[in-house]
Write a protein that binds this DNA or RNA. Structure first.
Lengths: 196, 196
DNA sequence: CCTTGTCCCGACCGATCGTTCGGTTACTCT
DNA sequence: AGAGTAACCGAACGATCGGTCGGGACAAGG
């Protein structure tokens, strides 16, 4: 039996409101006053649910990072040819970006001003390196062209995927991002130009 | 005869310092105190050169936008097949991103909290649409695949190019970004995968 | 009824925000 | 030398920052 319906805030439901405001105004541009207006409760009441502004940030980026790292544990990311594993990770990244959009958006925008932000940037860099290794392996296995440097290609691939947070908005009709994942894979692996 | 060497600040030289700090800490995360420390002059002295914090932002994003819009006026962006014009704009965007890196970085990160930021976002959107029209024309002329929607492809292309501000750092040996432009064009137009 | 704990509030804290002001230094021009 | 001005400074402004405090409203359990 899950908790019955309550019209009060939980740390999680408050987080959802906070993350939305963070993304609209930027984390540094958001005051606790802004959050209280958006949540409909007073500024001091927020501190009944969470320890402060930075805990909201930490919860948000943790959620995003957990979603991303979980991809690497999936079977299709661990077994098979590197190029196929890379394509799977690419598709699943688009999936996580769309399903956890506000949290990932916040993660991709932290600047490293606080210890929490630097920790998030470090974990994110770890994830990036893991995917970069996958791309290098795909080149070594002869499935990807080697005239584009692996690190550069990884950065451009991430640039393409991560740009979703700048323009993707969830759709009423259930666009779960599968068609976007197709487009990303098409563009990244086969290119825009028609070869003939 | 240009102005003789001066060890005092001009609005332009102060802007260069300010933009660097803005990019390190984020615009909202940067206080005038931070700027005064970085510039080596007192907080109040900054106001002798510029009207305030927001003018620094306006000057910076204006410079970035002027650089981008100038691309569209170039002959190679106005004449020839759409696909070739698009490739030229792509290469030149990489060039402007690298040569005006800190200014474009700031432009790509504004959130719309002030009138200046919203104006910058509007102008940037105009530019994006101009490039999107180019891509649509290239599809209409039969040079680009039509199984990826034009607007989506434009967004992914921009995502790839704009990601430069997240990782590109100017090199001592004059890497002017030409090799990066090659990589972007290779990836975007021909893809990563080896076709055979 | 009274206690207990959850949820919330207005008032307030010291610190910091962007900005202003009056005044001083130092260079340029005559 | 004296006047004018560009460049700069310390001190302070009102506003807002993130966060604290004591207490009120209210439902549950006895």
């Amino acid at each position: 039996m899950t908790t019955a319906k309550r019209d009060t805030y939980t740390p999680e439901s408050l987080l959802a409101v906070a993350v939305q405001v963070f993304n609209e105004r930027g984390y540094d541009g958001t005051s606790m006053e802004h959050l209280s207006k958006a949540a409909g409760i007073s500024k001091s009441s927020i501190y009944h649910h969470v320890a402060g502004k930075e805990e909201l940030l930490r919860r948000a980026v943790s959620r995003a990072l957990d979603g991303l790292f979980a991809i690497l544990d999936e079977e299709q990311a661990r077994e098979g040819r590197a190029v196929d594993r890379l394509e799977h990770v690419t598709r699943r990244m688009v999936g996580v970006l769309t399903s956890e959009l506000p949290y990932v958006t916040l993660l991709l925008r932290v600047r490293g001003n606080t210890e929490t932000e630097r920790w998030a940037m470090d974990r994110r860099r770890d994830f990036d390196h893991r995917v970069a290794d996958l791309l290098k392996a795909a080149i070594a296995e002869g499935d990807l062209r080697e005239d584009v440097e692996a690190r550069l290609a990884t950065r451009l691939l991430f640039g393409m995927i991560n740009s979703l947070v700048e323009w993707f908005r969830p759709d009423a009709r259930g666009a779960d991002g599968a068609e976007i994942a197709d487009a990303v894979v098409q563009l990244a692996f086969r290119g825009l130009r028609i070869e003939d």
